[in-house]
Structure formats: C-alpha cells, structure tokens
C-alpha cells in the first residue's frame, strides 16, 4: 500500500489501551503526513498527555497551535466543545460562568450519556470541515486524533450510533447522523489501533476491532504493535553461539575480540550472552501474543520496533516515522 493511500482519509483516529504508546504512534503518524507536505493537526482528547513534551513542552490549547514544521497540536476539552456547540447552534455567545462549571457539564453529560463524546467528535467534524466556532478556519490536510483509551474508546466512537433516549428525540440526532457518516466513510476517516505484544493489550485490541465492526459498523485500518523487540540472532548465529559456549571459558570469542583489540573478561562475555538470552526470552513472549493478534484481526498488523530508551523524544518519533513509512509501503 502506498503511504499516500494510507494517508488518504483526512481523519486518522489512533486508539488503544492506556500505556501502549498511542501518543507516540499518533505523533509518528503526524510526522509521516507532514513529511509528505501535508498540514497536520494532532488532536488530543481531554488529557494533558505526553504530546507537548515530545514537541518541546508547549502546552496544547483548544485552538490548534503549531508545534513542529507542518504540525499543529490541540487539546479537545469537552467543556470547551460544549461551549462552542452552544455558541454555534444556539448563538449563546457568552455562556455564563454558572453553566460552564464542572458540575453543570457533569450534569448534562450524565443526563445525556454520549453527549460528551458527540461533542468531541463534533469538534473533529468541524475541523474536517475547516470550521471553527461556525466560522471558516484553517484547513488541515490530515487530522490525527489521539483518542481516549480503549474501552472508553468504544463508547467514544459508538456514541453517535447508540444515541440515548434523551438525545434521540432532540436536535443532536441530526448532528450525530453526520458523525456516523464521517466515521463510516473510509475515505474520510480511519481508525487505527495501537497495542503492545502483551496479553491484556492484545485481547483488548481484538475485542475492540471486533466491536468496531459489529457495533460501530466500521473497519479498522491497521493495528500497530508497538515496542516489539527485533530479532538479534539468526539460526546460524544460534548455532555458533552454542558451539562457542560449549567452552566454559569461551576462548574463541575472546580471541576474536582480541583481534580487534577488544579485551573481554569472563564477566563481559556473561553479560553479552545474558542480554542475548534476555532478548530471546522477551521475544518469545511477544511472539506468542503477536501470533494471537495476527490470528485474531483481519486488519494488517504493523510492528514498530522497541527503541532502546526509557522515555521517547522527538528523534525516536522520527525513527518510528521512518519505520512506519517503510512498513506501510510494503503492506
């Protein structure tokens, strides 16, 4: 699949369970799009996430602000989306303090479950249409939505389909129909899932993919399996390792090392083999879950490598974007 094709829908929704690296994947996806000359907006939903840190610490507001060349960032806060909705639909210019209070927003979203999600999706719809507050606004080529964590995510995406009784009779009905259209049209929007090669994230991803099909009526795009340890030793390397390690004090390796003026003691060699073994053990666990993932989803699985870090920064995201381009191309 061409990267262009992958980026064809204007809205790319990235979702997954908490802690699997959704924000990282969203950011990498945004970079891929920006590299192709697109004007990209990454929208976080109601969270103070890692996104600002990745892009140099700038806080994200409700208005898109530029965070990197070709990339804008914003944070969709339901309270503000409610305010904007009331302003656009009911010309309530200045919503009084009382009604923008947390209690009131809590109230209205409890009274009408799903409204909060519809407001957030509505904001994305506005962005897609190039509108802001009912007025024409900057037009993005790509909108990457860093969606709420899975579980919640299903409720999020299915909100316009399963309107509560309260909303079915009201004016929100018509607007949610627009959202349903937007979500179900693969030319306009695509949902990509992110997971780790671990038991719980994989099983939730399978459930989510299935529910997206049956409950929401949309086909997920791709599943990104994040932080996958890459193969180190090929079969021949394994054989070589076994042979040299038969010697309790692997002279052969030490000799080879000495040839390039590298002095390795017994402990060094133990550490070298230790990490190789550790990697194999982790890979075996991951492989099991990746198999389950591939068997369980019909969608293409894109593996992203584990990056040897402990907190990703922009250069790491660039690396992931490289891998993403390459893997999407070979789909």
């Amino acid at each position: 699949m061409l990267v262009e094709e992958f980026l064809a829908p204007k809205i790319l929704i990235v979702s997954g369970k908490g802690g699997v690296g959704k924000t990282t994947v969203s950011a990498a996806l945004a970079l891929v799009a920006a590299r192709r000359g697109r004007k990209v907006c990454i929208a976080e939903v109601d969270r103070k996430g890692t996104l600002p840190r990745l892009f140099g610490g700038r806080e994200l507001g409700y208005e898109p602000g530029q965070i990197a060349p070709g990339v804008w960032g914003m944070n969709i806060v339901p309270e503000q989306a409610l305010g904007e909705y009331l302003e656009v639909q009911y010309h309530m210019k200045r919503v009084s303090k009382v009604f923008s209070s947390t209690h009131f927003v809590d109230y209205i979203t409890t009274a009408a479950p799903g409204l909060k999600d519809i407001l957030v999706l509505g904001k994305i719809w506005y962005l897609e249409q190039g509108k802001q507050g009912g007025r024409a606004s900057q037009d993005f080529d790509t909108i990457v939505v860093d969606a709420p964590a899975a579980g919640h995510m299903l409720t999020f995406l299915s909100a316009p389909m399963g309107l509560s009784d309260a909303l079915r009779l009201g004016p929100v009905r018509r607007q949610s129909d627009w959202l349903v259209e937007m979500l179900r049209d693969p030319k306009r929007s695509r949902v990509h899932l992110v997971t780790l090669a671990e038991e719980m994230p994989v099983s939730e991803t399978l459930e989510t993919a299935e529910a997206l099909r049956t409950k929401v009526g949309l086909d997920p795009g791709a599943v990104f399996a994040n932080a996958v340890y890459q193969e180190l030793l090929k079969k021949e390397d394994e054989e070589t390792l076994e042979r040299v390690m038969a010697d309790e004090n692997p002279r052969e390796l030490r000799t080879r090392a000495a040839e390039v003026s590298l002095r390795l003691d017994k402990e060094d060699l133990g550490a070298l083999v230790g990490y190789a073994r550790f990697l194999e053990a982790r890979r075996e666990i991951q492989a099991k879950h990746l198999r389950a993932l591939r068997t369980g989803v019909e969608d293409p699985v894109i593996e992203l490598p584990f990056l040897f870090s402990a907190g990703l920064a922009l250069p790491d995201i660039e690396t992931l974007a490289d891998v993403m381009e390459e893997k999407v191309d070979s789909l």
Partner: peptide, 9 residues
Amino acid sequence: AEDRLLAKL
C-alpha cells in the same frame, strides 16, 4: 561467523 556473532552480541 564468530566475529559476526560477537558484533551482534
């Protein structure tokens, strides 16, 4: 083969 293995390790 041993050299290559060592490089990887």
